[in-house]
Design a protein around this nucleic acid. Structure first.
Lengths: 219, 219
DNA sequence: CCCTGTTGTCACTCATCGGTGAGTAACGAA
DNA sequence: TTCGTTACTCACCGATGAGTGACAACAGGG
């Protein structure tokens, strides 16, 4: 039994996972981070824990403590990783930048945000987490998210200024709040406040309503 | 020891809780339901479980299984109980019903909904739960909630019809979505999309922005 | 009186959670 | 080879979760 090590070796080589070259710290760290992001995105923050992440990453949970200092550190790593959201999701230029009015800008921004959020399950889960809990973990993620969002808006805003006589900060908060709740609700139940949100046609109607609202406020 | 039952009796009589007349099923059922509602409202759906409810209700968890058939049945009971939301939260008449236009109506409705949601932690938790999970429990609650909301809107709508040329269903969904996310976010973190929502003045600004939006769409 | 059903309590199983301490296996340097 | 460091695994702990079966206390009816 003991000197018949060829069996073990052959098994290790034939069935060995090429994704996981044994003894590679960087790769393991990445595997853990990816497992965490995947779990959060696909399963939600319910059941998001050390054990599940280790299971998914295919390693021992001890390594999560060693490399990230526990769940908190791992969540923080997700947060910093979130900074890449802007450059991943947003086109470099806005298609010629022929946006002359503030209304043009906000219309485009709101629709872009809607689509970006629709395409990003991880970001959706984080938003849902934000309105459900107020722990240190969530605050960290929330901060990273709002920074990414602010940076994105800032880049798009350029030199355009909001029209006088309207509280643009408050109005824009409403618009983004509406988009966030709409997308969250749709992702979970396929509808929001009685409005079906499944087919592409449904979403076109929603987008049209959003544009209508933006135009109503900003002209 | 066995025949010295006087000790037990005296303790039971002097320290007996007047709030809990032993052997009263109706009272126990109510205590369980109230404990569940209180826990969901104050602690959130995280940690909302059999043990916590029984602890809070001051009875054994076995009774929850016996009287409600487990958590699912209890949640369902909360749902039906939710039907009273309309008559609890909404004034019978709208102050004379001098609402002549659809814009008047929606402006009033949105603001009323904002305030009602702000005042109701239980309803807030349910909304947060809705966008976080898609279990049977949540669906039941969600259905009850949307029914209550629809009934409320229906009562207020009267015979007013939306103006032509605007998709009122979609637009209204946006408005209510905005209010929901705004209130949820504010309740958790005191702000939403960079807009502070703590003081009465903050909320006045938010309400003004909402009205501005409604007026922009419905004139 | 006993019998039966209701109300409530207790003690337990089993699974899973976060967290820790000890031990093992690969690898590079001496 | 030997030794020490690094990467990694395993076995366990206490706490807590949902769920169950047995039993005690009391009520009313025969």
């Amino acid at each position: 039994m003991l000197n018949d090590s060829s069996t073990v070796e052959s098994v290790a080589e034939t069935a060995g996972d090429p994704q996981k070259p044994v003894r590679n710290r960087a790769a393991t760290e990445a595997a853990i981070l990816n497992a965490a992001k995947w779990l959060l995105a696909e399963e939600g923050f319910q059941g998001f824990g050390i054990n599940a992440i280790a299971r998914r990453a295919g390693c021992d949970k001890q390594l999560i403590y060693r490399y990230y200092g526990g769940l908190d550190g791992l969540v923080e790593a997700i947060g910093t990783d979130l900074g890449s959201w802007v450059k991943d999701r947003i086109p470099e230029d806005t298609g010629g930048m022929f946006l002359l009015t503030y209304g043009d800008l906000m219309e485009r921004l709101v629709i872009l945000f809607l689509e970006a959020l629709r395409d990003d399950p991880l970001m959706r889960r984080i938003v849902a987490w934000e309105v459900s809990e107020n722990t240190e973990q969530v605050r960290r993620l929330s901060e990273a998210r709002s920074k990414a969002l602010a940076a994105w808006i800032e880049r798009m805003r350029g030199s355009l200024v909001p029209p006088k006589g309207v509280d643009a900060t408050s109005v824009n908060a409403m618009l983004f709040a509406a988009v966030q709740h709409l997308v969250l609700s749709a992702a979970i139940s396929g509808q929001c406040a009685g409005l079906a949100l499944k087919t592409a046609k449904d979403w076109e109607k929603a987008a049209a309503a959003l544009k209508r609202i933006v135009r109503g406020v900003y002209g």
